[in-house]
């Protein structure tokens, strides 16, 4: 086993293990964790469509999830209570499964998108994830006070004559693009496991918001490193090993 062979996949996944738990804290803050699953499924459907159209799958995945993220707010009032995210999730899942079932060319990519294909990550993907991750973390830092304020005092924007939509739409779009990128490498459920379980555990334990972010980051990175080593050692697909480690950790702590 060559260390160099797995260096790029490891670093690519590590970037997601840093980004997704922090993003997940803000999704959990907004009660929008279901949106993460919806974005991943839509990204999978978009990637398959792009492949059929002769385009790079990553472009289709980013475009489809980005469109959902940008437009999500437009239907928020009519589709309240998580209904919008559930519809997006079911629509994305149906599309992806139907394309996979009916197009022999799409079958392999379809399985890779749902199971994860981290070991095949190349240097271009690492650059994209590294730069994209840094930009996303910078914007999260920028949006953080407004995201927290919108949760505890939703009226404060109107009272101060500020617009809330740039924060909301900016966050939705960024979350969608991050989840789309993560789906391309970690798979639908691997990405969801990192975005859901570390924040869930962190919110139970942390003494304040900053500590919550640190807890989520620590749990995410520790689970990722352990899962990467375990999956390689046991010759198992990475996504399910990561998910099961996080589930076991979650059950133990909870």
């Amino acid at each position: 086993m060559s260390v160099e062979l797995f260096q790029i996949p490891f670093l690519t996944g590590l970037a997601f293990a840093i980004l997704l738990p922090i993003l997940g804290c803000y999704l959990r803050l907004r009660d929008e964790w279901l949106a993460a699953l919806a974005y991943s499924h839509l990204a999978a459907a978009g990637a398959l469509l792009a492949m059929l159209a002769g385009l790079a799958p990553v472009i289709g995945g980013l475009a489809m999830a980005g469109l959902a993220g940008a437009c999500r707010r437009l239907f928020a009032r009519r589709l309240s209570g998580g209904a919008g995210d559930a519809l997006l999730l079911l629509g994305g899942w149906s599309g992806a499964v139907l394309i996979t079932a009916n197009e022999p060319m799409a079958e392999r990519l379809g399985h890779a998108l749902f199971d994860g294909q981290l070991y095949f990550a190349g240097s271009e993907q690492l650059w994209l994830v590294g730069v994209g991750g840094l930009v996303a973390l910078f914007f999260l830092r920028l949006l953080s006070p407004n995201l927290l304020l919108a949760r505890v005092y939703p009226d404060i924007f109107r009272l101060r004559g500020l617009s809330a939509w740039p924060t909301q739409m900016g966050f939705d779009l960024m979350a969608a693009l991050c989840l789309a990128l993560a789906t391309m490498s970690l798979g639908v459920m691997g990405a969801f496991a990192l975005v859901f379980i570390p924040p869930w555990l962190a919110f139970r334990r942390a003494a304040n918001w900053r500590a919550g972010l640190c807890w989520a980051l620590g749990i995410g990175v520790a689970a990722y490193v352990a899962a990467f080593a375990l999956a390689l050692g046991l010759d198992q697909p990475f996504g399910p090993v990561l998910a099961i480690l996080l589930v076991l950790g979650g059950l133990l702590v909870a």
């Binding site: 304020l149 505890v152 404060i156 334990r205 304040n208 918001w209």
Partner: peptide, 27 residues
């Protein structure tokens, strides 16, 4: 004129790791 409004709705903080000091800093 800058307005501030306190409503009878309790901010939804249950299950959320937000300290009092962080809340004050936000507003």
């Amino acid at each position: 004129t800058h307005l501030a409004l306190q409503t009878q709705d309790v901010p939804p903080v249950v299950g959320m790791p937000l300290s009092g000091r962080e809340l004050l800093a936000l507003t």
